[in-house]
Amino acid sequence: MEFPGLFNYWIVVVLMMTGFYIVIAQGNLVKKVVGLNIFQVSVFVFYISMSKIRGGTAPILDEGIEIYTNPLPHVLILTAIVVGVATTALALALVVRIRDAYGTIEEEEIGQLEQEEET
């Protein structure tokens, strides 16, 4: 097997797990959103790297070009990026509301505040 082989998938897995780790291990809500973004970008890289064909060019029609990279994943990811930003905006709006309601954006402090309210 030549060098790139499956290397692109491994990069994707490492990135994805980094994002996953941030989401589950960090208590700060803004950082969790950043982690989700990293996770998302890893999926985008996965799709885009699958669409690449060796020796192909960008999918813009022109004379004398035989091999084009697969355009379909590009379209899907174009949509996904924009949707991703929309969900990020919604998540950040929720963070702002949580900060208004609890005065903090740390997960543990919110949990403590809720326990105090119950007792």
Partner: peptide, 15 residues
């Protein structure tokens, strides 16, 4: 680098 120029535009502008 991976030939996805449209996606790169969008990522740079939006992401």
């Amino acid at each position: 680098v991976l030939d996805a120029v449209d996606v790169a535009f969008t990522e740079a502008a939006v992401g």
